[in-house]
Design a protein around this nucleic acid. Structure first.
Lengths: 220, 220
DNA sequence: AGCATAAATAATAA
DNA sequence: TTATTATTTATGCT
């Protein structure tokens, strides 16, 4: 099992219907049924602004308390110098099932149902307390607890040669959203790490988007 | 098992040149132990690990104090919910010369010379205190102080063209819970897949979040 | 000294 | 949830 790198995910098949290919499909979904998606409301939807209501409850859950904790949680996480990804991974390791970065993100934003929040809160609470305990014992203990390698450093910034940049830009002009296979090919051709090339395309798209409001990628 | 974790950079200053290399303990010693390059060493290079030396000084500058402040500064900045960019911009506006995001970044990482740090510290200290004062007066005051537009909404992530988004939001305002037929119509009008539009509405409702506390769709 | 942009983190469409 | 965009941070450079 190849260890999947955090955050920056390995390439994946390019989104269908994007890029150079045409196909402005307009398929009519067969589903005649109620659209709905009638999910229960999230905590942030139910809870009101700062002044806090005397008793905001939903199914016997103290929403205000949860809101308070979520806010606090983020601050304490940052104090520990941890990312959402790290928390998720650590939690997955020590506690039960899987906790993704997204899950942590959603909890912090309270973009979840009260029920989920209520369930997640004690888990986070417990874990956080333990993590803080480790930190007091020393940074090493914390890192160990979290599961990160102590000496992990930021990747050195790559500098592309002018030739490589030229080639990359040429590729980009042809296709701004290459598939995984294409990225691999380009990386080999230019003799750069695949991940580096992948990120280059990400950032290049980003830059373009910032520059021109025109969204070149989307095909309606 | 998934090792690898993103960097755990914050809070803890980088080991900077320590580790494998010979102990950089030579600061009192007159021996010309070369730190590394010919450049003046940065604070993080001069300061040692957590336990802190009784008196780490350089040119009469209390390095330990600076290290402490830098660490604290980051935490307080995050508590205020500000980015390095915002601090830089605000500083540029209120204080003298230009302070770039890079500058703030380098200060926090102590990737600067003691002299620069010593000069910057009081500026940051003063500004931070003032910002915190504003925050106590209300979030609006802080944003005003920082120079951000109060009503500015977070830019939306788009796979949709700006035009499409505009249309979608207009529809949403009229009706957050369109029927199947309506969704079909909207999808055709915007020439997006029906499913895409349907999911957009789902996500839109789900993420109603901060902006509005009014529950557009009634929940029994 | 600080811009440009690579790398990393957070948020969100699917 | 995962895969990808949006945002922020960090750093190589002249």
């Amino acid at each position: 099992a190849t260890p999947v790198s955090p955050q920056v995910q390995p390439i994946q098949p390019a989104p269908a219907g994007v890029g150079t290919s045409p196909a402005p499909v307009a398929k009519v979904s067969p589903s005649p049924v109620p659209i709905a998606c009638s999910e229960p409301p999230t905590v942030s939807q139910l809870v009101s602004k700062p002044p806090a209501p005397p008793s905001a409850e939903e199914d016997g859950i103290n929403l205000e308390e949860i809101r308070e904790f979520a806010k606090n949680f983020k601050l304490r996480r940052l104090s520990l110098g941890l990312t959402q990804t790290q928390v998720g991974q650590a939690l997955t390791a020590t506690e039960g099932p899987a906790y993704s970065q997204s899950a942590i993100c959603r909890f912090e934003k309270l973009d979840i149902t009260p029920k989920s929040a209520q369930k997640l809160k004690p888990v986070l609470e417990k874990w956080l307390r333990e993590a803080e305990q480790r930190q007091r014992e020393g940074q090493q203990h914390l890192l160990e607890f979290v599961g990160g390698e102590p000496g992990k450093k930021r990747k050195r910034r790559t500098s592309f040669t002018p030739q490589a940049l030229e080639a990359l830009n040429a590729h980009f002009e042809r296709n701004a959203l290459p598939t995984g296979a294409e990225i691999t090919r380009i990386a080999q051709e230019l003799r750069y790490e695949r991940e580096v090339v992948r990120v280059w395309f990400c950032n290049r798209r980003q830059t373009l988007k910032n520059t021109s409001k025109l969204n070149v990628f989307h095909v309606p």
